[in-house]
Design a protein around this nucleic acid. Structure first.
Ligand SMILES: NC(=O)c1ccc[n+]([C@@H]2O[C@H](COP(=O)([O-])OP(=O)(O)OC[C@H]3O[C@@H](n4cnc5c(N)ncnc54)[C@H](O)[C@@H]3O)[C@@H](O)[C@H]2O)c1
Ligand SMILES: NC(=O)c1ccc[n+]([C@@H]2O[C@H](COP(=O)([O-])OP(=O)(O)OC[C@H]3O[C@@H](n4cnc5c(N)ncnc54)[C@H](O)[C@@H]3O)[C@@H](O)[C@H]2O)c1
Lengths: 207, 207
DNA sequence: TTAGAATTGTTAAAAATTTAACAGATAAGT
DNA sequence: ACTTATCTGTTAAATTTTTAACAATTCTAA
């Protein structure tokens, strides 16, 4: 199940969340066009994605939601759940930890780091905050594979480098500073402001 | 300058931010491959994007940074700057307002809304927080064109509908709840968890 | 002043992604 | 049982996006 297109992986995550909602609402089966409507894409795309992961629906009945959620989980999650660190316990860092805590997903934040004494040695939603100096030590001890950078932009490159040295395998960067990592580390840059500027652009051009 | 590919628009926003950084660092000109390195894309792509917006560099000297920033601004910004509302003054809502405030960009948050009495009638980074009931009134009075939804997911569809009724033209949705809007409204769904799950997927498959 | 290196701008090719088209299967109604 | 509506799964086509290729231009320096 390795060669899924990037975009498909992204959509699978979204399918799963929507499907869980439907499950909670009491539905057991769903049609491709229903999923499509929920996510504003076409039903063809949904069917194609589902085909790619090797799932089959029942004709005239649709897809079994529970099974799909389970299958997507198999593809996206790891058995034991992934262990994550958040670096920079400001607004966004804290928001993230609280959010994941409530969701109880397979993605577990198991440590956080900061340099501000007010934040260090405190616990946020069960996540302990260490001084940045202990980054490498804790990451290795706790077998953390993913780092989320929510520090001020200026220090992001340095933090990034330290994460890589410590052996992290994936980084999600929330700062607007573009980072560099070796090939074997997966880097996702998540830029909230670009999204907003994109909206602004399209609003401007639809006037 | 209407028919820019979606992806190009996105990159232009990123170019601008990086270029501003370079400007601040004292550079006046930059080569396509330098921009490319900053953003982890190819120099061809940079040149192509720049071509599409009708800018020209100087051979062997590169692109004039100041001019490029100005041109990108012309394409992306509106003259007067866009007026924005944030609905839901929790962690993310506040983070956003503070961030935009510091940046002093053309994107101005001019109002925010909540239902929690603790938040209402207070000011965050110069942005006043109104009760949700006044949404339509304020949006129309203040000529707000863009809404950022950072409420709890459950109420997002309702908020969205109210925004549309009030005449908003673009929505940036931070909740994991997919929304529906009429064709003339531009909707961007920004899902932080999907990004994280994507990282997790690729980490898993690189092991 | 000429050769060589560097860099842009553009067209063409390739790759990735989305959409269309439609055959085949099944449930529901008659 | 037969017909019809509806959906899935899949292959093929279309579109979008990225990458390659290279001519043209400018600077450097022998
Ligand atoms: N925190 C994260 O990392 C994260 C990640 C992904 C998605 N999200 C989503 O982003 C959204 C905001 O997250 P947050 O951490 O800022 O949440 P939060 O709980 O801190 O803030 C929500 C705010 O919305 C207000 N609110 C409630 N009902 C409202 C209504 N009807 N109208 C206007 N305001 C209302 C609340 O009073 C509160 O101030 C949520 O939907 C959350 O699921 C958060
Ligand atoms: N807030 C937004 O809406 C928004 C939007 C786009 C991008 N961003 C970016 O996201 C990042 C975080 O934003 P925020 O609003 O949470 O910022 P914040 O200032 O609230 O939090 C930053 C945290 O990082 C800590 N920190 C500082 N230096 C550190 C270091 N060397 N190592 C570890 N921690 C360190 C600080 O003590 C603080 O707790 C920033 O880079 C910001 O530019 C924010």
């Amino acid at each position: 199940m390795k060669n899924l297109p990037d975009k498909t992986v992204e959509r699978l995550c979204q399918y799963r969340r929507s499907l869980n909602n439907q499950l909670a609402a009491g539905k057991t089966h769903i049609f491709s066009h229903e999923i499509a409507n929920l996510l504003h894409i076409t039903s063809v795309q949904v069917r194609r994605d589902i085909m790619l992961i090797g799932h089959s629906g029942t004709l005239r009945k649709g897809y079994d939601i529970k099974e799909m959620v389970k299958l997507i989980g198999k593809i996206i999650d790891t058995k034991e759940g992934q262990r994550i660190a958040v670096i920079g316990m400001g607004n966004i860092g804290k928001a993230f930890i609280h959010y994941l805590y409530e969701k109880r997903s397979k993605l577990k934040v198991v440590a956080s780091f900061d340099v501000n004494p007010d934040k260090i040695d405190k616990t946020y939603a069960d996540v302990y905050c260490y001084h940045l100096d202990r980054l490498k030590e804790i990451i290795q001890k706790e077998d953390i594979k993913i780092g989320i950078i929510t520090t001020p932009p200026m220090v992001a490159p340095e933090v990034c480098e330290n994460l890589v040295t410590a052996g992290i395998k994936g980084i999600l960067n929330f700062t607007p500073k573009p980072l560099s990592v070796p090939d074997e580390v997966y880097l996702e840059e998540y830029d909230m402001i670009t999204s907003l500027e994109k909206v602004a652009f399209f609003v401007k051009h639809n006037e």
